[in-house]
Design a protein around this nucleic acid. Structure first.
Lengths: 345, 345
DNA sequence: ATTAGCACTGTGCCCGGCCGAGTGCCAGCA
DNA sequence: TGCTGGCACTCGGCCGGGCACAGTGCTAAT
């Protein structure tokens, strides 16, 4: 299907499409010709509007639930709206203030990834999603080996743009600190390596190449390090305001709601969908079937990537395709600025 | 309402209640007198069964959706069944084998808390829940302070019966290792303390009592340590097999399904409900309104506490009140034995 | 090109009637 | 006394018809 260019539609069609989208977003019902006329004080007659709507339908931008119903935007209609019609919105001062407060509080307490989802959900009145960045191929650039008191040993690995992760184990016999440092150096000489698989490859090489006296520690440490990296690669998706999406009229049938149950329980499909926003430094919109996971193809996602503490995260909002894109984009733009997403690396 | 004693019901009433519960569990429909008679080859007449059912209804064990429908167990009916009627079930060999394999594989890969939910869900054909144990008041019994290469510093805290948690920060100026060790010792002298609040109190005391040269590091380390403990106290709830609960006939209306959406998204109510199983060394059953969170009062939970790696966890299964308690209890009993839950501290 | 008018079509809703399931009760019987 | 067969009753679910309504598509007029 060829992408519509902005100038394929004349001014009137563009205005009417805008009206239909925005009316339908707020009213959640098919919109008819006389409603558009009345709501926007148009001086043209309903019949003319009907003709225009018919053209929009031929373009695939509107559709018709049944003969005697009004029009509803198609996913392509929303796409056209988002790309060419929607004008920037500004946040209500109260919303802005609430966000500022929440962000400031989060910064102080340091638990920003905990506070962000409820704040976003509250401000957007939609389900908010925050995914701590995942990257299977992220380079492991740090490796630390520490002997703790009491015989336990600690291994720490850091991936680029990610936090440091640690785990501990208790070897059969105490390990000489000098051996630890040599083992550390041996590993570091090969850094950076690519993700968990890189570490596993390193563990493999270690068996034949590393000096025997450090092989023992490394045999314990490297697989654990690989597991840590693999664990970081599974993004933790945090959610806020699930009540909003569950309250939407499009999710008032069990068939519509069920996929949501699955997605919210096992968040993997959601994480997958959010990955595609990893490069978005400004809010990006994904509408319905534009994203892959079937369970959320009745939803739209507006999201972007921001710096969150030491690592990057995708933050966004998910709702029905009939979503107030204007408002949500404005919201995310603001939050992104506040968190330094746009200015980030 | 006074608790029913097992001998308040004569043998026939007990048998009929058993039949009604078990039929309803498998068929998900009200069960009528002639169905009971036919299904269990009873030699008594439907009329007699009806009389018996009427008595059971007077006891509050059965109820009646409407005049011309069969009987349905009440929550108290299920409770009586679970307490007095249900006989131990044995696992199908295939299930047992599948579980053995999953557990063995999980043990090898070390990621048991990842593998357990899907395994439990698959074996029980219900939603499985695994909650890593939380305890606000858990004693902090370990404290480590380590200088890493590159100027970063690492603080590690361990709570009793829990894993070691770590975080890092980068102080303005490098800290002398000797100072680190003295700071460590100063904190350890006060261990164990109770949970995050204990650490916060310690940070408070530190300001007036600690030698000035270690106050700087501790001012950075102690609040971070407190946050780590607070974070551990928020149990991570993992789920498996959400499709099972979403497929149950009792959740085929939006009103029934909606609370589930909320609970699965924000897992806090679930975590709260699971806390009450922390002391259960054998499967315990909580039926409908027996647990507090309103959102899951149309569900039952069968769960128990087991040792999972270094810490304890509550593992269980959640489904509609109409749940195959026999089978699920047998399943959890088996898994509990395998994980050493019963034999645990 | 726009508009007024009008016939048309499909949905949602209410209503009445029917069917079936399963009960409660009663009278009769071991 | 306890069980049983029989019977009237009640309620939910389902089906089909009829009505009101909304909003369209078309045509003819401006």
């Amino acid at each position: 299907m060829s992408r519509l260019t902005p100038d394929m539609l004349d001014e009137r069609l563009r205005r009417i499409l805008t009206f239909v989208v925005e009316s339908h977003v707020t009213r959640a019902e098919p919109v008819g010709s006389q409603y558009v006329r009345a709501a926007y004080h148009l001086s043209i007659s309903p019949a003319t509007i009907r003709n225009a709507m018919q053209q929009l339908e031929e373009f695939g931008l509107l559709s018709h639930p049944h003969t005697s119903a009004g029009r509803v935007p198609t996913e392509q209609g929303y796409r056209y709206y988002v790309d060419h019609l929607m004008r920037p919105d500004s946040l209500a001062p109260a919303t802005r203030r609430a966000l500022d407060e929440a962000l400031e509080e989060a910064r102080l307490s340091g638990a920003i990834e905990e506070r962000l989802p409820p704040a976003l959900a509250h401000a957007s009145r939609h389900l908010s999603v925050v995914s701590l960045q995942s990257d299977d191929t992220a380079r492991v650039h740090r490796f630390e080996l520490v002997g703790l008191d009491g015989g336990e040993h600690l291994v720490a690995v850091g991936i680029e743009g990610g936090p440091l992760a640690t785990t501990t184990w208790r070897p059969a016999a105490a390990v000489d600190p000098a051996i630890l440092r040599r083992a550390e150096s041996w590993v570091r000489a090969s850094l950076p390596v690519a993700g968990a698989t890189g570490l596993e490859a390193l563990a493999e090489r270690m068996r034949s190449e590393a000096p025997p006296e450090i092989a023992g520690v490394l045999a314990e440490a490297l697989p654990r390090a690989a597991r840590l990296v693999a664990g970081m690669a599974q993004p933790a998706v945090r959610l806020g305001g699930a009540e909003h999406i569950a309250a939407q009229p499009e999710f008032q049938t069990p068939d519509a709601l069920r996929p949501l149950v699955l997605v919210l329980a096992e968040r993997e499909p959601l994480a997958r969908a959010l990955e595609s926003f990893a490069a978005a430094r400004a809010p990006r919109v994904s509408i319905g079937h534009e994203h892959a996971p079937a369970a959320i193809q009745s939803c739209s996602i507006v999201a972007m990537s921001v710096e969150l503490g030491p690592s990057r995260a995708v933050i966004g909002v998910m709702g029905p395709v009939r979503m107030p894109y204007r408002r949500v984009v404005a919201l995310l733009t603001y939050v992104g600025e506040r968190l330094g997403g746009g200015s980030g690396a």
